[in-house]
């Protein structure tokens, strides 16, 4: 028994130290910073203020928040629209094909997402693969603006976050007994009716999980909007990054971070309210 206790301490202590020193303390520090005043040289004055939080509700920042949410929402919807047909299509395939295709979804996952996002520049830019093809085949005269706008950001977000939607949806679709689908068809349900009446209600928890795992990062993935938005489109993630690195207004950046964390918590609350299961996401 004594040994057991020792092992318990030895195995949990590093995790606890890690969590406290690298997650809890920085977060508390951010919280602390958010109530301080910014001085003219990019430093921090130890003077309590609430003005940073008032600035967050400034029209300019609310607009950025709205725009970020819209981009995240569109990203989430596109991911859903791609994931369902893909998962349902997989169910008719043999196990070998299924495993192969799921691996194909997973492999890009293993590469650095920053590098992958740079890859999209080659495809989307003015003299990139798509535009070169379209202009050389005379389908269009002038190259399309595929990046340095919201379109480019959404493509990058969908591409990066798609696996987070496919995996939970695929996993809940694959749990549905095939005979339920056959029974629905047998009773006269069209493909859309089968989806609406069988697939959707039986995979709702997978759908919630996926949406949460796509929407929340999509608000904050600043590097995608930096690279594919060309710095022209601000999302909350960029805004925060800029406050820390460019504008050197740490207190405002901290307030924005806390604000983002609060939004995330609200989303999780809503998710739990409408029946999501936190256990599927590792419990909370």
């Amino acid at each position: 028994m004594k040994n057991n206790k020792l092992f318990k301490y030895l195995s949990t202590t590093p995790v606890i130290i890690y969590s406290i020193s690298l997650i809890l303390i920085p977060l508390l520090y951010i919280l602390f910073l958010s109530f301080l005043t910014n001085d003219a040289y990019g430093g921090v004055e130890y003077k309590f203020t609430l003005s940073n939080y008032l600035t967050v509700f400034d029209y300019t920042y609310l607009k950025i928040l709205f725009k970020s949410s819209l981009i995240a929402l569109i990203t989430t919807l596109i991911c859903i629209i791609i994931s369902y047909p893909f998962s349902i299509f997989l169910m008719d395939k043999s196990e070998k094909t299924r495993n192969f295709l799921i691996k194909m979804v997973m492999i890009p996952f293993l590469t650095n997402s920053l590098i992958r996002t740079y890859g999209w520049i080659v495809i989307l830019r003015k003299n990139g693969v798509i535009n070169t093809f379209l202009t050389s085949t005379n389908i269009i005269k002038n190259p399309l603006s595929l990046m340095y706008n919201s379109f480019g950001i959404i493509i990058g977000m969908v591409y990066t976050l798609l696996p987070f939607m496919i995996l939970p949806i695929y996993s809940s679709v694959s749990k549905i007994d095939r005979s339920l689908i056959e029974a629905a068809k047998d009773l006269g349900a069209s493909k859309w009716q089968v989806f609406k009446n069988i697939y959707l209600p039986l995979t709702i928890s997978g759908l919630f999980n996926g949406s949460l795992m796509v929407f929340i990062p999509a608000i904050g993935y600043f590097f995608i909007s930096d690279i594919l938005g060309g710095g022209k489109i601000m999302i909350i993630g960029n805004l925060i990054k800029n406050q820390f690195l460019t504008a050197r207004n740490w207190p405002l950046g901290s307030a924005l971070s806390i604000f983002l964390i609060i939004i995330t918590f609200i989303l999780i609350r809503i998710y739990k309210k409408i029946g999501g299961n936190m256990d599927d996401l590792g419990g909370m």
Binding site: S179, L180, D186, L187, N197
Partner: peptide, 11 residues
């Protein structure tokens, strides 16, 4: 109409 072996009732 088919009655399936597993009954295939919608849970």
């Amino acid at each position: 109409n088919t009655i399936f072996q597993s009954f295939a009732l919608f849970p």
